[in-house]
């Protein structure tokens, strides 16, 4: 195993970026990307998950919120998440360029200049926070600003290239949206919103480490100290199983604490059993294609798992008989 922990991850940034942009068509320092390229900077797939979890936070929050205000909050949270994505792509263009999964992104592909991505991300970040503060409330705006800061500065600029615990701590950024939604709707932070935060927080490591298990070559080339690269696949499998063992009961806790109905209890129990089964399979299968298949299955199912949990919470909140199921 390569000892990446001792490598200097920051040194080749500019050289790699220059190489990534070699041949890019620039006339005046600008790359004239299309509207679609700018939309791609917002990481639409990540944004859709953020919108969904924030929506659950909004509808689960106590009290009534006007639909227009709820829509405005959701829009600002989505734009804030997209802006974080754009700033992430600006900073990570060098490592994106050497990873197969990310090399076609607008900045490493040379369709948008790094400076353009930075300006785009900063403008949207400031705009989203300001509009949320002006039109909804200050607490949600402060939380959104902190989320963007956490994702861009704490995770992207600091943790990602420094420690294999990057996605554990950085996962907090992805866990904040339901809390922001909750704060937007209620003006406060409740226990349930903290639980929603914790569910996503503990879901993130098994999800990303499953991906990192079969993409470790990419991360190693890019010099990103993901757990499989630094500590090895065996330790990663153990950590995946441990985090899943914490995640599953935690995900069931809203039912046991009386915050969610029987339907949520059943779904979280069955889906949780699926997560445990797949995590155990990842732990057992360590060689060849069965090992990769197990990691891919866990990665895919983890997305469905989180979606199911939040979908049931959403249904229970908006359908009158939902919580009685």
């Amino acid at each position: 195993m390569t000892d990446l922990a001792s490598r200097d991850y920051d040194m080749p940034r500019q050289e790699a970026l220059n190489a990534a942009l070699h041949g890019a068509r620039a006339v005046d320092g600008l790359h004239h990307g299309s509207v679609a390229d700018y939309l791609a900077l917002l990481k639409p797939r990540v944004m859709s998950l953020v919108i969904f979890t924030a929506l659950v936070g909004i509808v689960r929050a106590p009290g009534a919120v006007h639909p227009v205000i709820a829509f405005t909050a959701l829009l600002c949270i989505a734009i804030g998440a997209g802006a974080s994505g754009a700033l992430n792509m600006w900073w990570d263009a060098d490592i994106d360029a050497v990873m197969s999964r990310t090399r076609r992104r607008p900045v490493p592909a040379g369709r948008i200049a790094p400076g353009e991505a930075l300006a785009f991300g900063m403008t949207l970040s400031i705009g989203a926070v300001l509009v949320l503060g002006l039109l909804v409330n200050e607490l949600s705006a402060a939380l959104l600003a902190f989320t963007i800061f956490f994702y861009v500065v704490i995770y992207t600029m600091w943790l990602k290239r420094w420690t294999p615990q990057n996605i554990v701590i950085g996962g907090a950024a992805g866990a904040f949206p339901p809390m922001v939604g909750w704060a937007a709707a209620s003006g406060g932070i409740g226990l349930e919103s903290v639980l929603l935060f914790l569910i996503i927080f503990f879901w993130t490591p098994p999800h990303f480490w499953a991906l990192a298990l079969y993409k470790s070559g990419d991360y190693e080339r890019a010099g990103v100290p993901m757990l499989p690269v630094v500590a090895g696949p065996s330790e990663t499998r153990r950590q995946i199983l441990l985090y899943t063992l914490v995640l599953v009961p935690l995900a069931m806790s809203p039912f046991f604490l009386g915050m969610a109905g029987l339907g949520y209890g059943i779904v979280s129990g069955i889906a949780g059993a699926g997560m445990l089964l797949l995590a155990a399979r990842v732990y057992r299968r360590r060689e060849g294609s069965p090992a990769e298949k197990a990691a891919r299955q866990l990665f895919g199912f983890s997305i469905i798992y989180l979606f199911l949990l939040f979908a049931v919470l959403l249904v229970e909140a908006v359908v009158p008989f939902g919580s009685g199921l």
């Binding site: 970026l17 041949g23 890019a24 620039a26 005046d28 040379g110 200049a113 400076g115």
Partner: peptide
């Protein structure tokens, strides 16, 4: 030249022929 002050070396290289 202005184009050579672009954000990227690629920008400058391309601008040299613009």
């Amino acid at each position: 030249r202005p184009a050579e002050r672009g954000a990227t070396p690629a920008g400058a290289a391309a601008a040299g022929g613009a």
